[in-house]
């Protein structure tokens, strides 16, 4: 029973991983790609780690899985932020159908 719950968590996580990679290929410019993919892939991998925790319980593997998910939640947004800022400063233009770009104006 507890294994089944863990498998369901892992399945949800892998589905979101796949959707995030699909977004990486499908969306039109760098910012949108970063947007969709970093969110979905972080959530999916945290789901997988939660599944590992549910299956193994409070043993060394489970605690390590929880720490891995926590670390991922703290660092993935920071790396996304660093990449987007560097890309904007190095001159990657947003998609031509973008509505507004206040960052370009204020720089």
């Amino acid at each position: 029973m507890i294994d089944l719950i863990g498998y369901i968590f892992i399945g949800i996580g892998i589905t979101f991983d796949f959707i995030g990679c699909l977004g990486l290929v499908r969306l039109p410019d760098l910012y949108n790609r970063l947007h969709a993919s970093i969110k979905c892939v972080t959530f999916g991998t945290c789901g997988i780690m939660l599944g590992v925790f549910v299956i193994h319980g409070f043993t060394d593997v489970g605690i390590k899985a929880i720490f891995c998910a926590l670390f991922l939640l703290l660092t993935a947004p920071v790396s996304a932020h660093a990449i987007s800022r560097a890309a904007h400063l190095s001159g990657v233009k947003p998609w031509e159908k973008s509505v507004c770009d206040h960052y370009e104006k204020d720089k």
Partner: peptide, 22 residues
């Protein structure tokens, strides 16, 4: 652009973490 490649490398790293979990 090079930035796209950096994004894809980052995502690939997170996917490998999930792989290790499975």
């Amino acid at each position: 652009t090079p930035a796209d490649r950096v994004v894809a490398i980052d995502i690939l790293g997170i996917l490998v973490i999930g792989f290790c979990g499975v």
